[in-house]
Simulated scan of single mutants.
Amino acid sequence: MDKILLVTSENGVVIFSKTTCCLSYAVNILLNELRADPVVYEIDQDPEGREIEKALLRMGCKIPTVPAVFINGKLVGSTNEVMSLHLSGSLTPMLKPYQSQVYHNS
Rank of each mutant, 00 (worst) to 15 (best):
residue 60 G to T: 04
residue 80 N to G: 09
residue 12 G to F: 03
residue 92 T to Y: 10
residue 94 M to R: 11
residue 72 N to P: 03
residue 28 N to I: 03
residue 35 R to C: 08
residue 63 I to K: 14
residue 42 E to I: 00
residue 52 I to S: 01
residue 55 A to T: 08
residue 84 S to L: 13
residue 84 S to E: 15
residue 1 M to E: 12
residue 18 K to V: 01
residue 25 Y to T: 05
residue 74 K to F: 04
residue 67 P to I: 10
residue 63 I to Y: 14
residue 25 Y to P: 00
residue 5 L to D: 14
residue 69 V to W: 09
residue 15 I to C: 05
residue 45 Q to C: 10
residue 40 V to I: 13
residue 73 G to D: 08
residue 65 T to Q: 11
residue 1 M to R: 11
residue 78 S to Q: 07
residue 105 N to W: 11
residue 31 L to R: 02
residue 90 S to D: 15
residue 49 G to D: 02
residue 66 V to L: 04
residue 9 S to G: 15
residue 78 S to L: 00
residue 74 K to C: 06
residue 77 G to D: 00
residue 35 R to D: 10
residue 4 I to H: 04
residue 91 L to H: 01
residue 104 H to Y: 10
residue 20 T to D: 03
residue 78 S to N: 02
residue 71 I to E: 03
residue 7 V to K: 15
residue 14 V to Y: 03
residue 89 G to A: 09
residue 32 N to H: 09
residue 70 F to E: 07
residue 70 F to Q: 05
residue 7 V to L: 14
residue 58 R to N: 11
residue 59 M to P: 02
residue 75 L to A: 09
residue 68 A to P: 07
residue 22 C to A: 13
residue 6 L to R: 13
residue 89 G to Q: 07
residue 22 C to I: 07
residue 44 D to V: 00
residue 84 S to Q: 14
residue 62 K to T: 14
residue 26 A to L: 12
residue 71 I to V: 15
residue 51 E to W: 04
residue 4 I to A: 03
residue 45 Q to S: 14
residue 84 S to N: 14
residue 38 P to W: 03
residue 58 R to G: 08
residue 72 N to T: 06
residue 106 S to P: 13
residue 91 L to D: 06
residue 103 Y to I: 15
residue 35 R to Q: 11
residue 54 K to A: 15
residue 54 K to I: 08
residue 91 L to F: 07
residue 102 V to A: 11
residue 27 V to K: 02
residue 51 E to S: 13
residue 21 C to Q: 02
residue 11 N to V: 07
residue 72 N to F: 00
residue 65 T to C: 13
residue 87 L to V: 08
residue 16 F to A: 00
residue 8 T to K: 02
residue 102 V to K: 09
residue 14 V to R: 01
residue 3 K to F: 07
residue 69 V to R: 08
residue 92 T to P: 01
residue 43 I to M: 05
residue 76 V to E: 04
residue 101 Q to M: 12
residue 63 I to E: 12
residue 47 P to V: 09
residue 7 V to F: 10
residue 26 A to Q: 12
residue 72 N to V: 02
residue 87 L to K: 11
residue 24 S to K: 05
residue 11 N to D: 04
residue 29 I to F: 08
residue 23 L to C: 09
residue 18 K to Y: 00
residue 38 P to L: 03
residue 99 Q to W: 06
residue 97 P to R: 06
residue 77 G to Q: 04
residue 1 M to L: 12
residue 37 D to I: 00
residue 34 L to R: 06
residue 101 Q to N: 12
residue 104 H to N: 06
residue 52 I to Y: 05
residue 7 V to I: 15
residue 36 A to C: 12
residue 63 I to S: 14
residue 90 S to T: 04
residue 83 M to H: 07
residue 96 K to Q: 15
residue 2 D to W: 07
residue 61 C to D: 06
residue 26 A to H: 09
